[in-house]
């Protein structure tokens, strides 16, 4: 019998990267496949992409795994690096994959400014609600009242609704899904990869080892069951009052519109001023 291999792994990952770094049950692996499936279904080539990530578990989604140009950067800064990559080579499809701590805490300023600028990159923000790699510290996405390593008596602060933040900052494409929605993630990513503007996809993802154990939220399956049970599509959520939305995860595509994209605007501007000069 010939050896059976996973087709996405065979086609899109570096041959010498033999294993993924994720803990058992981690949502990152679901997102890995969702990204690669979007590329596969679009018939795109990995050479059309550059993947940029920061620091934290989910920064390992593309790097070193994806067989493409990958730039593994410093904590919080991947969007700033990616902005330079995109402006330097606008024909590249530049994709950032990183976590909530990386992109919404230490890198929060770059996130909102990239949305405001409408730089044509795709940002996949994996929101596991905790600092996982360093061992269960409070993130700006950790629910109020749970116990973490750095709030052993309970967190006192409110959480960021990151998708709303990015929406308010002007991003033309914003979607939120959970790892219970891999097909929907792929569908949104296909739109993101083929649209011109700043595309933001927040993925609520299970971290059974840190979030699950530290905050006593249960196993990978417990978290996935919660995503299944408590996810509410945005269309339905809009008809519900805030009280009945408590504890729910609003998912779906929040906005999908056209706005002038920065690298294209730069190309036009350069042509205009160079023509004026000659």
């Amino acid at each position: 019998m010939s050896e059976i291999m996973h087709p996405l792994r065979m086609k899109y990952t570096r041959e010498h990267v033999k294993k993924t770094t994720n803990c058992p049950g981690c949502g990152n692996g679901i997102i890995v496949q969702a990204i690669l499936r979007a590329i596969d279904e679009l018939g795109m080539d990995m050479d059309e992409f550059a993947f940029v990530s920061g620091i934290g578990c989910s920064a390992w989604i593309p790097s070193p795994l994806f067989n493409a140009d990958t730039l593994h950067t410093t904590h919080g800064r991947p969007i700033a690096f990616a902005t330079g990559v995109k402006l330097g080579k606008p024909e590249l499809n530049v994709v950032v994959a990183s976590g909530d701590g990386d992109l919404a805490a230490i890198g929060g300023n770059h996130l909102i400014h990239a949305a405001r600028r409408n730089i044509g990159i795709t940002v996949i923000l994996v929101n596991n609600g905790i600092y996982a790699m360093t061992g269960g510290q409070t993130a700006p996405t950790t629910p109020r009242g749970v116990n973490t390593t750095t709030n052993p008596y309970g967190t006192l602060e409110s959480v960021f609704d990151i998708s709303s933040l990015v929406l308010a900052a002007g991003a033309p494409f914003v979607a939120r899904w959970t790892t219970y929605h891999p097909r929907q993630i792929t569908s949104s990513l296909k739109k993101a990869f083929t649209s011109r503007g700043f595309s933001f996809i927040e993925i609520i993802s299970q971290c059974p080892v840190q979030y699950g154990k530290v905050t006593k939220s249960g196993s990978a399956l417990d978290l996935l069951k919660h995503y299944k049970k408590d996810s509410i599509k945005i269309d339905k959520a809009r008809t519900m009052d805030p009280e009945s939305l408590k504890g729910k995860i609003v998912v779906g595509e929040f906005v999908n519109e056209q706005k002038p994209e920065l690298s294209a605007e730069w190309t036009e501007l350069k042509a205009r001023v160079m023509e004026g000069r000659s």
Binding site: F81, G84, G88
Partner: peptide
């Protein structure tokens, strides 16, 4: 960060 990205 962005000039590093553009250099790449």
């Amino acid at each position: 960060s962005s000039i590093v990205g553009a250099s790449w």
